[in-house]
């Protein structure tokens, strides 16, 4: 089974600062990590390999520093890693991102299963997975909490939905996005860490991929962020103090006056 896992490098915190002049996010000085949901995707890939044999390749699109995250994936035991990196990929929204990743996966070739995280903790859209599947013209299932069966032709999964789950069967090749309920990610192994140190991460640029220039980066992105603000929490709070009974009395009097209760 040939498995590809898509991982995104994200800032280690969601507590971002904004440059008030340029209206952009300040990323300097913030440590980067593998998107936490993608750790479950890597783990699931490794487990499938252990059970059914095959290989796990991890792919990511991003700036050169993403090699660090890919090396971390190697330390966890994946077979190969690939970085899609090129200036012209920058500024991509989810449509352009998923197109570029699909092109990378096409170049890898012969892939049976693609795993993504549920969503990235920075962009938070959860759109890249289904987008990749569409560009590759393969089926997808989101929010997978369990893989129940795999053969060389089909995969069966449980997908979380509000108030329950669905059991879904798909023909392979297919794409899944996974939730944290699916497994417990492992830690790096010594062997993996040693291997990752020697590893030279292959980088594919736009030229290496057979991409249409109008579909990548800023050019290929229909959405555009026009402003970024930090939400202000403004409420006219009425604080009651004093004895407990008084506070409670005052609260219910206010609720009655305001015709709330």
């Amino acid at each position: 089974m040939k498995i590809v896992v898509c991982i995104k490098q994200v800032p280690d915190t969601t507590d971002v600062k904004i440059n008030k002049e340029t209206n952009t996010l300040i990323r300097e000085g913030v440590k980067s990590i593998i998107n936490p949901f993608d750790m479950y995707a890597i783990e699931e890939g490794l487990r499938l390999r252990e059970k059914y044999g095959g290989t796990v390749t991890v792919i990511s699109m991003g700036p050169p520093q993403v090699t660090e995250s890919l090396k971390e994936a190697v330390s966890l035991g994946v077979d190969d890693v690939i970085l899609l990196s090129d200036r012209v990929f920058a500024g991509a929204d989810t449509l352009a991102t998923s197109y570029t990743l699909a092109k990378g996966i096409e170049k890898i070739g012969g892939v049976d299963l693609i795993l993504c995280g549920k969503q990235a903790i920075d962009g938070d859209t959860a759109q890249v997975g289904p987008g990749i599947a569409e560009h590759l013209d393969i089926p997808h299932v989101t929010y997978v909490k369990e893989i129940t069966d795999v053969t060389d032709k089909i995969i069966r999964v449980k997908r979380m939905i509000e108030g329950g789950y669905e059991e879904i069967e798909m023909d392979l090749p297919a794409l899944l996005t996974v939730v944290k309920e699916i497994n417990e990610p492992r830690l790096p192994s010594i062997r993996g860490i040693l291997r990752s140190r020697e590893m030279e991460v292959p980088i594919w640029t736009a030229q290496d991929l057979d991409v249409d220039e109008d579909k990548i980066g800023l050019n290929g992105s229909p959405t555009q962020v026009v402003s970024i603000t930090t939400p202000k929490f403004e409420a006219k709070t009425q604080i009651f103090t004093g004895k407990v009974e008084e506070q409670v009395q005052n609260l219910f009097n206010a609720l009655r006056e305001q015709r709330i209760l």
Partner: peptide
């Protein structure tokens, strides 16, 4: 922005090649 909407939306948007703003 439900389990269904967040699965269908990106698939449709990618097919007709338009933008989709999430959530």
């Amino acid at each position: 922005a439900t389990a269904i909407g967040r699965s269908l939306g990106p698939r449709v948007a990618a097919r007709i090649k338009t933008g989709l703003t999430a959530d």
